[in-house]
């Protein structure tokens, strides 16, 4: 299905709109300021069932947060590439 790459912080409405675009079988990856969703409890309420969510570890740590503070599993750059290869479409 689709990999949805979200790079804007939770304060920008487009992030919420992109999360809402996800359908069953999609994967959401938070990168750049989008990683701030990883520490925002309200994000969980937006995620539909059967939508996988990941956070880019390097961008999270660059912003002063550690992996264990994340509400969602982290991937590194290699993991990001795997996600791109695994999904037929990209929405970014």
């Amino acid at each position: 299905m689709a990999l949805i790459i979200i790079k804007k912080s939770p304060t920008e409405n487009i992030s919420k709109r992109m999360i809402e675009m996800a359908i069953e079988g999609d994967t959401i990856l938070f990168v750049q300021d989008g990683v701030l969703h990883a520490i925002d409890e309200t994000t969980k309420d937006l995620i539909k069932n059967a939508v996988s969510v990941f956070v880019l570890k390097e961008d999270l740590e660059a912003r002063g947060y550690s992996e264990d503070m994340s509400l969602f599993p982290c991937v590194n750059y290699d993991g990001w590439i795997e996600l791109i290869e695994k999904n037929e479409k990209i929405i970014s």
């Binding site: 709109r17 675009m21 479409k89 929405i91 970014s92």
Partner: peptide, 14 residues
């Protein structure tokens, strides 16, 4: 309609 509309494209750039 937005979600299915967006998924009907091969590439989506925001």
């Amino acid at each position: 309609e937005l979600s299915s509309f967006v998924h009907s494209f091969d590439k989506v750039i925001i």
